[in-house]
């Protein structure tokens, strides 16, 4: 795959994974992917990369912070 085409494909796949493609663009991309096994590999790798990055830990606020916010709100004028 030529680099320019590859970059274009990655951009489209990225937008597809971000749910940002229009319906017609999505249909066109899926048609291209179906017709070309190399495209499918790009999609699966980008998807893996995304899941890999996601797997950035969520953190929980302490009960003390929640309590403090609620107390301050109670005395704050609107």
């Amino acid at each position: 795959m030529r680099d320019q085409n590859y970059q274009e494909l990655v951009k489209k796949v990225t937008m597809y994974l971000d749910n940002e493609l229009s319906e017609s663009a999505e249909r066109e991309l899926l048609r291209e992917i179906k017709a070309n096994p190399a495209y499918l590999k790009v999609l699966s790798q980008e998807k893996s990369f995304r899941e890999f990055i996601k797997s950035i830990h969520r953190r929980k606020p302490s009960p003390a912070l929640i309590q403090s916010i609620k107390e301050k709100i109670r005395i704050a004028p609107v």
């Binding site: 969520r58 953190r59 606020p61």
Partner: peptide, 24 residues
């Protein structure tokens, strides 16, 4: 939304006290 906000604040500051201040 507090869990999501705290996660975001923590990844901006990388400091629990700063994240608490920011969320508050």
């Amino acid at each position: 939304q507090i869990d999501a906000l705290y996660t975001f604040a923590y990844h901006l500051t990388y400091n629990e006290d700063d994240a608490n201040d920011l969320v508050q």
